[in-house]
Design a protein around this nucleic acid. Structure first.
Lengths: 190, 190
DNA sequence: TTGATTTTGCATCGGCCGATGTAATATCCT
DNA sequence: AGGATATTACATCGGCCGATGCAAAATCAA
């Protein structure tokens, strides 16, 4: 019915997500994506619309990917999964792995001082999702004060991601992960 | 010997610091400062040079202010000071207080994907200073594993500041502060 | 008062970026 | 083959920002 696209939309979206992840919203430009993907500026704009919309789709992709990981790590839900999560967060990775750039959602919290509602909702929703799944892990093992402790673990997690972003290296969070594991084990014992 | 300035440099620097703190490096413009302070664009540029240099001076001012606070809270150094720090971090403040915008250093980690060395050094130095002073508090009370635990507390602190920035409200970190205090007390007891 | 010196106000340059207009191009359906 | 339709390539607009040039203004020393 019409001229077909020369590029795969999902592929380009993935490329945009990692670009936002590494460099942030501002520093990621349509013209930069044009160079990286070889897709023309006008085609990108045709496919994704304004930059804000592309960013929102990148956040959605990120959330979906993260949930897929949680489905595995928290299977079944419990403190073992939490411990695995914190240990995995600080595991060494190849230097060019995008996860050395921290977490796209956390980065977004800080970069965009006054984001549009569409973005703020996605970030807040992501955080709530993550916290609720950690709380479910605490509940599964009968840990008391699960609400406050899940918030506590969220704080710790995002703090680790701060340090990872500062150092551009997941292993920079290893000392924190070690004490986090101790603390969770302490809850389980006590 | 020459025409005198019509503005106070320290006052303008303080204004710039809070602007960077609230809105970030990019969103804070010389033209915006011109409006806020009433000082002409050309005069600002004359006094502070390029924007990067102004930002570096703002970071220095921030560090000095923070150290002055630590001098009080950690007097004498010990876990009581640490507990006071974490509780104070989540204490309610007037809505327009700049501390509801988190921490300038943490914000900087995230906003600037590839900062000039002058900036990166200041941020890393600030974090190291803060961690060392927390470690000194642990040492003062004979807490073991002080190095890793100080890192752990840094992670927690920066995670609380993430949540504060997301919510634009220090009290959003209250649940984390409560568990943090419990955890520190546990170290003291055990 | 006069001259040296710094600040100030105004205008402007150059660059980057998001976004759009337009015409040529490539496909599918009939 | 031929028309309808979406994509592509190219050029460009408008806006914002950092930075600078320049001349008028304001002070102090002599």
């Amino acid at each position: 019915m019409a001229r077909p696209r020369k590029f795969d939309e999902g592929e380009v979206l993935g490329c945009a997500m990692t670009a936002f992840w590494r460099a942030g919203f501002e520093a990621t430009t349509y013209r930069g994506l044009e160079s990286e993907t070889g897709v023309g500026l006008r085609s990108l704009h045709n496919a994704f619309g304004e930059k804000e919309a592309l960013f929102a789709r990148a956040l959605d992709l990120y959330r979906d990917s993260a949930e897929a990981v949680l489905d595995q790590v928290f299977d079944p839900p419990g403190t073992d999964g939490l411990i695995a999560l914190f240990q995995g967060m600080a595991a060494p990775l190849p230097a060019d792995d995008v996860r050395n750039s921290g977490c796209l959602m956390v980065n977004t919290v800080f970069e965009r001082a006054d984001p549009p509602a569409e973005i703020a909702e996605r970030v807040a929703g992501y955080r709530a999702m993550f916290r609720d799944r950690m709380k479910a892990c605490l509940d599964a093992d009968g840990i008391p004060e699960a609400d406050a402790r899940a918030e506590f673990l969220m704080g710790l997690l995002w703090g680790m991601l701060s340090q990872i972003r500062l150092a551009r290296d997941t292993t920079a969070a290893a000392p924190m992960a070690a004490i986090a594991v101790q603390t969770i084990q302490g809850w389980r014992a006590g």
